[in-house]
Design a protein around this nucleic acid. Sequence first.
DNA 1: GAGCACTGC
Length: 720
Amino acid sequence: MMSRKQRIDLGESSREASTNKRSKCETPNNINPWTGAPYSARYLSILETRQTLPVYLFRDNLVEAVKNNQIVVVEGQTGSGKTTQIPQFILEAGFVTPGETSIACTQPRRVAATSIAQRVAEEMDVELGQEVGYTIRFEDVSDPVKTVLKYVTDGMLLREAMSDPLLKRYSCIVLDEAHERTLSTDVLMGLLMEVLPKRIPGSKYGELKVVIMSATLDAEKFQEYFHGAPLMKVPGRTHPVEVFYTSKPEANYVEAAVRTTMHIHECEGPGDILVFLTGEQEIEQACEEMREKAGAMGKDLPELVVYPLYSSLPPQQQRKIFERAPLPRVPGGPSGRKVVVSTNIAETSLTIDGIVYVVDPGFSKQKVYNPRIRVESLLVSPISRASARQRAGRAGRTRPGKCFRLYTEKSFHEDLQETTYPEILRSKMSNVVLTLKKLGIDDLVHFDFMDPPAPETLMRALELLNYLGALDDEGELTDLGYQMSELPLDPQLSKLIITSPEFGCSAEIVSIVACLSVPQVFMRPREAAKAADAAKAQFSHPDSDHITMLNVYAAYEAIPDRDRRQWCWDNFVNDRAMQNAYNVRQQLLGIMRKLDLPLVSSDRKGDGSFAFTDIRRALTAGMFMHVAYRQRSGDYLTAKDNQLVALHPSSVVISRPDWVLFEEFALTTRNFIRTVTVTNIDWLVSMAPHYFDLENFPECEAKAELEQAYARLAHSRRKT
DNA sequence: GAGCACTGC
């Protein structure tokens, strides 16, 4: 289709006009049309502030554009007010029928969905959860009838779409932060491409309007994708940031970051510093060096406090970054300075006020997917120019700032990519494919992805789902596949849950799966490593990290609520992780009930004695595509893919068994497999003969074993 | 005998 590009520009005169018109239609009387109650004084004062937002000037044009087009793209910089205002404009312009349809505005993160909903409820002078609400996993603060504007995580809207593929409940979808290109946003965009032609004016469920909001310059790419939908540009409100580059490349970016930070502290005026590094280890190391150097600089300089920031840090330590910089050493002297050394979490998820200086070495850890060996891993990689601009922008939130890039200007222009590859090009597609099949998309090859994943990646996903029995040989969703799509898990874990009742241990498997879907169950602080290992040893089962997790979870659940925190602390167990695992488990139990999957425990006496062999067999039935075997040389090789791997040193399995199944492939200093359980070849061939078929099994040491196992299997079948 | 970017359902 030919692309029809439009651009809505506003001259000064039209701004005047729209401002004048606004005041008349805004408050015809002082009654809130949503509640029928008089507006509060607070509403009127918030309204004044709202009207100073840059986006306010674009109100009439936006409403006009939405009226005349099914899709509108909005490019709005940070501070434009687009996220809070645009859904309200659409609402006020009458694009919803209360009680029948509403607006959904998606956000990539939960905190954003909840806090923005809270803010907008205040602005509209309504109670949160009534006319304005939010829905995130585990929490639905909305009313099925009354809510006309709902903020949701993008993943949540995708879940909703699985039971309502035409999105009948909505007359308008606002996709916010589309430039972040999360997996869910990308799938939603593709889905909208399918749905929009079925939701035109006069169609059964009425017209569906879509507003795509992006904060970066690639809004034109969205315009292109949506067949030339009109693009509206809303300016933001930020301060200028001066950018500096190094004259030659830095050999060691951590050392350079420390040096630059100390230089800023010595030579630059007041203002806090934000330093971007890639991971926990690097960050802790840099923090130590900075503290050391600041100590050595003596008392002539103002005090420097250094805070690390990464997501696995406990919340109370994360909150420290918001503390004010230290006071001057002497009354009237220069005030102290705060340095926050952070992962990418400070690039989008967390905003720290008062940052004036940004140090950007130009790297971050990024997920990459290698379809050839079916492995997702994290790699330290150069960031994109878009990401570098976003980082620099963090220096200009409260006043003009400076950004120090630890690479050359030439490198910025010539070596960095313009934008980061969207997540969909860096992930395995097994879950996405299952979702799309559930959404009724049959032809995946021609599905209109904004950036289509590599064909090999899609093939791998189809192959995996076929091996798991979720898709038949024609690529149609099977009954098992339907059940799997209901579970918010990776397909292999879904399969594990669904088959676990057959092994008489679904209660245990659902606990294990809940633990696997939260990060970091075991804590191991460097200074208390021995004590932590001893604590873990109490729970460990020599044949299985999975069962070790189950033992911890079972012990945790047996502790009364009020003692759990202390118990976790005493046993080096991550309290937050266990609470999350509990929530996940409850959700999974609910879905199991819905799917009529029986909850059976292998602990038949109820005294905590689980049938470990049954559990290991159930794990084998779900995870047969993730196994490795020991070669005569002593090294482990993954079955079929022939990848050389090592058991991770954190594993409780130290007996060097012949066959193991594993949860995770971690490419770090070596190729490690993490979270492993002992299995055996006889189970594998009897449970997954279609995967361990001799014909397609590559020549390797295991092949002879495989043949023997099949012979044993045939022999035992003849006997019975 | 070593490590864990970040989200999300």
